[in-house]
């Protein structure tokens, strides 16, 4: 959408207005798209094989990335924590510090970001390519709704995979923190686990992290399929849609994370 020819600062104002309108337009289109997907969910659930296939693509194929990332994030948390906490003679609390950091913040957020990079891009480029090669139009011609057949199972697969990936990331992260703190740095093992258990609360910490990851799963999957489905059906358009999916998902996850944290902490 280009602004009409007007001189000077009014042009800037107009362009700002147009991009604002485009932003809200896309935002609204995304909401409507989500509603269409939700309306197609019964169809997707009636064909569990399609969904299982997508859980496999989104989850199992991201597993190695998530596990490696979790291991090293946990290890670096323990290393940094040890470096600072040992100045106060509080290195026994390292298990608690690492576990709280992981289950509350890093686990859900880093998993969602990695998911956007590993699986989100694959989703949007796959759907974009289907659109560019007229496969979606072909389905419509055969009276198969591509939202039901292609989009909804992929969305659902992502929504199921992200919380599970987050759990695995958290577990691997705590394992990594244990490895670094107990095996490498020689923190007392009993103190490591008992401090962690004493301070990490199942409901306030572990479950609030899982609640976050469910929201992130919905956001990341929705943005990936949305960008793919609405891409310009050319080679360049598919590439752009893929980039946009990652960038938008990352930003959305980080903003959403702040809002969810404020909401989840608000009760206390």
């Amino acid at each position: 959408m280009t602004a009409p020819r007007v001189p000077g600062w009014r042009r800037l104002l107009l362009e700002a207005g147009y991009s604002l309108r485009d932003f809200f337009g896309t935002f609204g289109a995304g909401q409507l798209f989500l509603l269409r997907i939700l309306a197609s969910l019964p169809y997707a659930l009636a064909r569990p094989r399609l969904v299982i296939q997508q859980v496999y693509v989104a989850g199992v194929q991201s597993l190695v990335v998530i596990m490696l990332a979790g291991l090293f994030v946990g290890m670096v948390l323990a290393l940094q924590g040890h470096n600072t906490l040992s100045r106060f003679g509080a290195e026994d609390t390292i298990g608690m510090v690492a576990a709280l950091g992981l289950v509350r913040e890093l686990g859900p957020v880093v998993t969602a970001l990695l998911f956007a990079g590993r699986a989100g891009t694959a989703l949007s480029s796959e759907i974009g390519l289907m659109k560019a090669t007229d496969q979606l139009a072909g389905m419509e011609m055969m009276a198969v709704d591509p939202i039901k057949r292609v989009v909804a199972p992929r969305f659902l697969g992502g929504v199921i995979a992200v919380p599970i990936l987050t759990l695995i990331f958290n577990a691997m992260g705590i394992f990594g923190a244990w490895l670094e703190a107990v095996i490498v740095l020689g923190v007392d093992e009993g103190a490591f686990w008992s401090q962690m258990q004493a301070q990490v609360d199942l409901q306030d910490d572990v479950l609030s992290g899982i609640v976050k990851s469910v929201f992130f799963g919905v956001a990341a999957s929705l943005l990936a399929v949305f960008e793919g489905y609405n891409c310009v059906p050319t080679a360049e358009g598919v590439g752009r849609a893929t980039t946009r999916a990652v960038v938008h998902t990352s930003l959305t996850v980080l903003v959403l994370n702040f809002m969810l944290t404020a909401w989840l902490l608000g009760g206390n």
């Binding site: 759990l167 958290n170 609360d201 199942l202 572990v206």
Partner: peptide, 15 residues
């Protein structure tokens, strides 16, 4: 694996 991780988080990590 997800279930095992959840079990680990509930029993070992949190109280």
């Amino acid at each position: 694996m997800g279930i095992v991780a959840l079990f680990f988080l509930t029993t070992r990590v949190s109280s």
